[in-house]
Design a protein around this nucleic acid. Structure first.
Lengths: 257, 257
DNA sequence: GCAAAAGTGTTGTAGCTACACCCATGG
DNA sequence: CCATGGGTGTAGCTACAACACTTTTGC
């Protein structure tokens, strides 16, 4: 356990009580303007983009730690959050020039050795409602913002690999997890839900078949409202019927999409 | 990093070069006499049964560590092995009386403190061919053997919980992973394959429909042999057609079973 | 020869794909 | 009034469950 302090322009971070060698990284997915987005941080010194992450306190489970980190980055509590893989290649962080550079040129952190160790990182993916998030950078970054999935370039360390794995997991679990419920606002149109599925799966779905199929699950409640201000016919709004949704997910939305 | 030595009747274990706070546990599944079995160790001093596990060396990935541990316990290389969950409850191992008792009464290990820490454990599940395994206890156990799933009682620490999670994962992945290929001997009958599926899923399947469905995937090769020495009509033997199997698994054996 | 398991066939149904058609709205 | 997206319907096909029936073996 380390008990040192980082002095930053704005904050003081106590590096105490963190377990050594263990970190976590979060792939936070959001959906807006029919596009899948991921929450990223821009590192102060190198300008590299990175996934939000953190360390695990002595008395926390790794899930609690992930929730703590995401609360700091998004302002949200009770985020839908699942661990999906452990990244433990001995070379993934140890003596990594990006990290050393980042930390050392940051002039604030006296203890190189803590970061200069090997870290095993537990990957989480999170699904959040885009509009609810207020992105907040951490002590090592100057920007925290949503980046469109297709515009994401080279990330720090092995974060591209982590992101890739998260996406694969999301696709696999599309039929077993309440993906739509967590990513969309309370009220949404069937087209928006379909676009979400299309974006995650990376392929087009038949509008009419999707509609009938998703309605057949009986997990949506049709509202008496329509979406106004859009071109063409005003689409009906729906919301999730939580009770039926949970029941259906227990059995798995066994479709093939 | 610790660099101490445990003297055991048969072996010497160097506790050096292990990452602190991180361990791994393996749920090794085998199938024999139409029953699903799990490889367990009986602890020398407490007599408690436990999952095979181990620690991670400084220069290993956690996957390499798991393979090393399983090589020691089963004699097998290149085992089908997947990580499925990280167990990190702060109370799961820290100051756990079972561990302290186990280690301290073992009279051999001078350093209580190393084990008396909190460990975050990565859970793996493995699928092996029953007959190929030669179970070997480790330094802390006197017996290593297959236990029928339904006969497994209270295990050490949170190992019942880990086992439970492994089973859930196995069921979920039944349609995406080459479960049959790894658990059955090279040649097998369709009944044996069906019994395996029934055991994992915990429910009966229609013999005739199972047969047609599994054959429709075109992943099995029908042999010119029959199983002799069994009562009643001699069943035809099959083996997996590896090429077609891998292709089919890429798409997922999208059945509902 | 009889019980039990293996192998093959049939039939009705549910769910899917691939469309056609009409409706409502903004320009 | 027309282009565009929304909403509903339908025909054909496939896959599946739930069966019946025959075959082959050990005892």
């Amino acid at each position: 356990m380390k008990t040192e302090t980082v002095n930053d322009e704005k904050k003081t971070i106590k590096m105490k009580n963190y377990l050594q060698h263990i970190s976590l990284d979060c792939v936070v997915f959001g959906f807006h303007s029919n596009q899948l987005k991921v929450l990223l941080l821009r590192m102060k010194n190198t300008g590299t983009w990175a996934l939000p992450g953190g360390f695990v306190c002595e008395d926390e489970s790794i899930e609690v730690a992930a929730n703590r980190v995401l609360k700091e980055r998004t302002g949200l509590d009770e985020i839908f959050l699942h661990q999906f893989n452990v990244f433990s290649d001995p070379q993934r962080s140890k003596h990594n020039p990006a990290v050393s550079d980042l930390i050392l040129s940051g002039q604030t952190y006296p203890e190189k050795s803590w970061f200069d160790k090997r870290f095993i990182s537990v990957g989480f993916y999170a699904l959040v409602e885009f509009s609810q998030v207020e992105p907040q950078p951490d002590a090592f970054s100057d920007i925290c913002e949503w980046i469109n999935l297709e515009n994401i370039g080279n990330l720090m360390l092995d974060h591209n690999h982590i992101l890739q794995k998260a996406l694969e997991t999301l696709r696999m679990q599309l039929t077993f997890q309440p993906i739509g419920y967590n990513l969309l606002p309370e009220k949404f149109t069937l087209s928006e839900l379909r676009k979400l599925y299309e974006t995650i799966l990376g392929k087009e779905l038949d509008r009419r078949n999707f509609q009938r199929k998703i309605l057949a699950y009986d997990i949506l409640t049709r509202l008496e409202e329509v979406r106004l201000g859009v071109a063409h016919k005003a689409p009906v709004l729906y919301k999730f019927n939580l009770e039926n949704y949970k029941r259906a997910l227990d059995e798995g939305l066994q479709g093939r999409w």
